[in-house]
């Protein structure tokens, strides 16, 4: 799999660091945002071009996960979003699914599982880009 650009949105440094650690072996480029607002700003910048997958938390200051995902899906529908959250909440999951997310993953998630999900999402992202 070729090198991808992954956007990680989470207010917790520990979470961002863990994702970095788990995805390190894949060689993908990790760009980080501390909240929904920062993520939206990043996606608008040129250096964010080519983001294949967004990994997004739910509980965040300023713009929370739900609002952020709504934005992502509206302005960047081709980028698959993996919601990575501490809330094992089926209703919340359903809400995200309705918004068209790629996957809903509850923390803590094992390295292999996260990589598999990210890879799958990256493939879908690639397909979507070809279609576009």
């Amino acid at each position: 799999m070729m090198k991808q650009k992954i956007l990680v949105v989470d207010d917790e440094e520990s979470v961002r660091e863990t994702i970095r650690l788990q995805l390190k072996s894949t060689g993908h480029e990790i760009i980080e945002a501390e909240d929904g607002k920062q993520a939206i700003l990043l996606l608008g910048q040129s250096n964010s071009h080519g983001v294949s997958v967004i990994i997004c938390d739910v509980r965040m200051p300023n713009i929370n996960g739900i609002e952020a995902v709504s934005f992502f899906r509206r302005d960047h529908p081709s980028i698959p979003v993996i919601v990575l959250t501490g809330y094992p909440d089926i209703k919340l999951a359903a809400e995200f699914v309705e918004k068209g997310i790629f996957d809903y993953v509850v923390k803590p998630v094992e390295k292999e599982r996260l990589i598999a999900k990210v890879e799958k999402a990256a493939i879908q992202s690639a397909v979507m880009n070809i279609v576009d």
Partner: peptide, 24 residues
């Protein structure tokens, strides 16, 4: 519970990630 879950799952996830790094 979901809030608590978030609260606990975040450090738990970090621990998991760190432990994996140590292993690998």
């Amino acid at each position: 519970a979901s809030g608590i879950g978030h609260e606990i799952n975040n450090p738990l996830y970090a621990i998991l990630g760190l432990a994996e790094a140590i292993r690998d």
